[in-house]
Computed example of a mutant assay.
Amino acid sequence: MKLPVVAAAFAAAFLTTSAKAQDVSAGERSWNKCRACHQVGEGAKNLVGPQLNGLFGRHTGAVEGYSYSTANKGANITWDEAVFAEYIKDPKAKIPGTKMVFAGIKNDKEIADLTAFLKQFDKDGKKM
């Protein structure tokens, strides 16, 4: 009698994980919304926004040579998946006073895919 319960729990967990699976290719397509202001990859430079290599685990205002807003420098945030998801939905709500002018990405799946794309790049822009 316990086996059907375990099987049902496993199936539910698998389906939940599959439904939320990150799609790097879709994330790369979503990246097109970002690339006018940001770069990522080997040789990435700061543009209107900072380069985004090694974003996850980095502290706000930490990219050398980029002129951050006072709000961003003082935000005291370390980027992780949850913080990035909240930020990218509405940058000005997460960091009031940021100079990032972007309406945001509201779709959770698209955010997860973009996150997967960005997480490929280490601090030097090499794909991990």
Rank of each mutant, 00 (worst) to 15 (best):
G27H: 04
D90T: 14
S18T: 14
H59W: 10
Y66R: 10
D23V: 05
V83D: 00
I88Y: 02
G27F: 06
V40I: 15
Y87R: 01
V5W: 14
V101S: 13
V63F: 05
G43F: 04
L47S: 10
K33N: 13
D80T: 10
N72L: 12
I105S: 04
L55A: 12
N46T: 03
M100H: 09
K119N: 05
V6L: 15
A12Y: 03
P96I: 08
Q39S: 09
A82P: 00
G54S: 11
Y87Q: 09
T78G: 01
V40M: 07
Y66D: 04
G41C: 05
G125T: 10
Y87K: 02
G27L: 02
L47T: 03
G65D: 07
G54P: 02
M128E: 13
K89L: 06
E42I: 15
T60S: 14
V24E: 09
A9K: 05
C37I: 04
H38K: 08
G125H: 07
K106Y: 00
A93N: 15
G65I: 11
A44P: 01
F102Q: 03
K126D: 07
A11C: 11
K73G: 09
P91R: 01
A116F: 06
Y87D: 02
A62K: 12
G49E: 05
E64K: 15
F10W: 11
N76V: 01
A12D: 03
S67W: 06
A7Q: 12
E81C: 01
K2L: 15
T17E: 07
K73T: 14
F121P: 03
K2Q: 14
T70P: 01
